[in-house]
Every structure is written in C-alpha cells, then in structure tokens.
Amino acid sequence: MSATIRWVRGGGLSTLLLLLPLLLVFGYFAWFPIGRAVVMSFQETNLVADPAWVGLDNFRQVLDDPLFWTSVRNTFFFTGLALLFGYPVPLVLAVVMSELRRGKGLYSGLAYLPVVVPPVVAVLLWRFFYDASQTGVFNTIFGWVGLGPFAWIQDASSAMPSLVLQATWANAGATVLIYLAALTAVRGDLYDAAEVDGAGLWRKIGHVTLPQLRGVLLITLILQVIATFQVFTEPYLMTNGGPQNATVTVLLQIYNYAFRFGDYGAATALSVLLALFLAVMSAVYFRLTRSWSTT
C-alpha cells in the first residue's frame, strides 16, 4: 500500500496519465489495427458479415500463389540494387559536401530537394521521363551522346533498375542530411592527428570518418533494408507490377489481394509473413553487428 502511495507521490500517476493520450492514440491507430490484421489473417471476411475462421488457409493460399516467389525475388532484387546504389551514394555525397568550404548549405539543399517533391508527383514525372520512344526525355539526352533509345520501364529486364534509380534519387537526400549531421560530431582533432601521422584523404576517410560513423551507418543500413522491403509507391505508380510481373513486389501483392481482389485474409496473411521476416532479420542483424555498434 505504501508502495502505491509512494508511486503516486513520486509522480508515477501523473506520468501515466500524461502518457495515456499517447497510449490511446497509438493503441487505437497503430497497435489495434496490427492486432486486428493478425486475427484477420486467420479469417475469411468481406468486412460486413461475421468472419469465418479458416485456420492457416490464407497462409497456404499466399504461399501457393505462383506470384509469391516472383514477388519475393523481385523485392530482394529491389533491395539489393537499392543498397548497391542507394547506400553508398548518400555517404559519398555527405563526405564530399562536408569537405566543401563554401556553399555547403546550397548543396545540402539541392540534395534534399527531391525529398520535398511529393512521391506521387516524382514517380509520375519519372514515368514521363522514362518514355521509351526516341523522343522521351532520357532517351533524347542519351541520344545526344549516341546511346539508346532504351526501353526503361517497358522491358522486363530494365524495369526494376529503372525503379531503383528513381527511388535512389528520391530518397538519398534525407540520408545525406543524417550523415552530414553525424559528420559534424566527428572530432576535428582526430583528423589533425591523422594528418600529423601523414594520412591522406582516403586514409582519413577509411580510418577516421567511417569508424566514427559506424553507429549511424549500421542504423541507416537496417532502416533502408526495412524500407526497401516495403517498396510500393514506385512499382504501383510506375509499372503496376509489369512488364511480365517483373516489378511485382511483396507489398504490391498485398495491395492487390486486398484492394484489387477484395481478399483481406490473404492480404493480412502476407503482411504478417512480411512483418515476421523483417522482425527476425532485424534481430539477427543487430545480434551479428553488436560488436561493431557504438551503443
């Protein structure tokens, strides 16, 4: 009893009450829908009549769908390509920009500009740029140097790299800013010491900058992997999964189940599978990289 009074007097109650609105908002708009989705993945429902319990049928249906492995493969492909291009590019840009003596603000503004453009507008603009005819914007530019015309999103083999290119352009700016902020925290005397020891630019980057950034690098890597595994806007707006299902991703497949075919059971089952996969992958990632982490 006295412990309760102590808790109340110690501010426990008012802390809880102050937290309550946040808990309710999160509970109602985030945790409750997540819980409902998990329940729904074991049901067949049209959202009006009482749902019927179907056990693991939705999971079986999703795993038996011929497009399941196509979408998984495509998602891995997107993630791999996005890491290949999208991970080092912002880092290089940030390091270069941090070395600049003038116009740092201008360049970081320019780098961030694509993030300000609404994603739908950006994707639709790029779809226009990717016009496969000789007179398309990109094809015209490549034509000046005797290249192309390229099929871009009209060909199964080049569609996904085209999406990655657009996604990298659109998202790199935000990561550049994170790296720039992290770079300001790198102590200048470390560079001075390295310079005294005769280190050149590359050695300073390799032995001072990158080790000092490793905490941020580890976090941005996993955040990027999680985000790219959930890629939707680009394939949905640019190619709608085509050509020949070359850009069908797991999230697009979830969307199609729910909103194209009205199969909410299958949609939530695949969502649960994706969430489980990402949770397990994140846990493994943090375990493997524990020794490198700065925290």
Binding site: G11, L13, S14, L17, L18, L19, L20, P21, L24, V25, Y28
Partner: peptide
C-alpha cells in the same frame, strides 16, 4: 504542478475516448 498535469492528462484522455466513441 504535478497534480495539475495529472488532471490535464486525464481530461485529454477522457475527451479522446469520448471522441472515438
């Protein structure tokens, strides 16, 4: 101040529930 904070939080929470309802 703590008590005032608790009352304010309670009012917010109740009104949120009422709004949802």
């Amino acid at each position: 101040r703590r008590h005032l904070g608790a009352v304010a939080a309670a009012v917010m929470a109740v009104s949120l529930v009422a709004a949802c309802g």
